[in-house]
Amino acid sequence: MSAPALDDATLVAAHREGDAQAFEELVRRHGDRLWAVALQVLRNADDARDAVQEALLTAFRRLDGYRGDAALSTWLHRILVNVCIDRIRRDHRRPAEPWPEHDVADRRPDPSHTATTRIDVVAALAMLPDEQRTVIELVDVQGHPVADAARLLDIPTGTVKSRCARGRLRLAELLGHLREEYQ
């Protein structure tokens, strides 16, 4: 029989007391979600890997200052989002392509606005309870039919539908400011 899993607060306390494995466990626990957020925001595996590494290094250095006002996962996501924003701004300032010799009308959306919107959506998803976020990501982000999501999660289809509905309502509240920006 294995030992019960320690909660995040216990692991943070253990890290503060010098337990090297405590932070490693936090990385194992939260790393996959951080990776998914970084990949979704930056759209490049190498950039996402670098962003996660930078965010985890920052978290490691600042963990003694973590007050616990928010969930550790929220705190980690905020650090990661800030790293991603900094990377996007830095890359936006250094254009990868040379300037054209004549002015060309750019019909693409402003990349900083698109990235900011993506970051807002990812951050809002991170604020949902796990069960709502999971079904929203399966159904709305990845496009799985409700029945497939129910089978994957081993829950009734009605539960998937209700969690999607509650998650979508919460996302609408959290992202209401975007509606005003696009009108």
Rank of each mutant, 00 (worst) to 15 (best):
D91P: 00
A22L: 03
L169P: 00
A51I: 04
V104H: 11
L174H: 06
V121G: 01
H102L: 15
P4W: 05
H113V: 12
I85F: 04
A172R: 14
V141P: 01
D148H: 02
D8T: 02
A36K: 15
L171V: 04
D32R: 15
V81T: 13
A126N: 11
S2D: 11
A71F: 03
L11K: 02
T159Q: 14
D130S: 09
N82F: 07
V12R: 06
L42M: 02
T134D: 04
R108Y: 01
P4L: 03
C164T: 09
D91N: 12
D19R: 11
A149F: 04
A96N: 05
A59P: 05
H177M: 06
C164Y: 08
P111M: 10
G158F: 05
E173S: 11
D32W: 08
D46S: 12
A70K: 13
R168E: 12
R168F: 03
R29F: 01
L39E: 13
E101I: 02
R16C: 11
E180I: 08
V12I: 11
A126F: 05
P100K: 11
E24S: 13
R61E: 13
D103Y: 12
A105Y: 12
R78P: 03
G167R: 07
Q21S: 15
D106C: 10
P100C: 07
A147F: 07
K161W: 13
D64S: 14
G167A: 07
R89D: 07
R89L: 11
Q142N: 09
T74Y: 05
T74N: 08
H144Y: 14
R170W: 00
C164Q: 13
Y182Q: 15
L6K: 13
I136G: 00
T74A: 14
R170D: 02
T159D: 07
H102W: 09
D32Y: 12
N44A: 14
D32F: 09
I155M: 06
R49N: 10
R89A: 08
E137A: 12
L175A: 04
G143L: 12
L26F: 04
E180K: 11
N82Q: 13
R61T: 09
L76W: 03
R151I: 00
D19E: 15
E173L: 09
R108G: 02
H113M: 08
V122F: 01
A13G: 02
T159A: 14
V160P: 00
L128I: 08
D32V: 09
G31E: 08
L26Q: 04
R90D: 12
T157Q: 15
R49V: 06
A172N: 11
L152H: 11
D64K: 10
A9W: 05
G143D: 00
R151E: 10
G65M: 07
R179Q: 13
A123R: 08
R89P: 03
Q132R: 08
R62Q: 13
H113D: 13
D46Y: 10
R49Y: 07
H30N: 07
V122K: 10
A14P: 01
I88K: 05
L57E: 07
T159P: 02
R93D: 07
